[in-house]
């Protein structure tokens, strides 16, 4: 298992991206799986930095681990409990005039992760996202039906 600790600061998003670059090689993550993983971690961490209050000394932790053919990513934080699985999908605007960007990150996580888990324990939230390695020769982005 590998772990990255980030400060609650938008400037840390570049560090997350660089860390993922290195882990893709180190952990031999297939390209399409790496795309889905990056999508979900980028959205999960950006949402935390944007929407949760900054508390001095508290961090955001990102973990990655292969469990057989499943890559498990976890994001931990100390913000007030928030279960993204309970959020209804955003309404799709019919016109540009009606379009108000927002709620897209959770929608992308739901689509690109094979499975999503959430728990809160001892003041820490833990969001878990799973990515199943595609069968040999079928290097496709995992997509829910």
């Amino acid at each position: 298992m590998v772990r990255l600790t980030l400060a609650h600061d938008r400037a840390e998003m570049g560090r997350l991206a660089a860390w993922l670059d290195a882990r893709e090689d180190q952990m031999a993550i297939p390209a399409r799986l790496a795309f889905a993983l990056r999508q979900c971690l980028e959205e999960a961490v950006a949402n935390l930095i944007k929407h949760t209050p900054v508390t001095a000394g508290e961090d955001i932790a990102v973990e990655l681990d292969w469990q057989d053919d499943t890559l498990v990513a976890a994001v931990e934080d100390s913000a007030p409990p928030f279960d993204p699985r309970a959020v209804p999908p955003p309404v799709r605007p019919a016109t540009l005039e009606d379009a108000v960007p927002g709620g897209w990150g959770i929608q992308l996580i739901r689509s690109f992760a094979s499975d999503i888990g959430y728990e809160t324990k001892a003041g820490r939230n833990r969001l878990t996202m799973k990515f199943v390695r595609p069968a040999t020769g079928a290097d496709a982005i995992p997509k829910k039906s």
Partner: peptide
């Protein structure tokens, strides 16, 4: 090679301005 919701937000806001 990658786009996140933050990047798409900028494109949508630009499209609204242009429209």
């Amino acid at each position: 090679n990658f786009v996140s919701s933050i990047g798409i937000r900028t494109l949508v806001l630009g499209a609204k301005t242009i429209q």
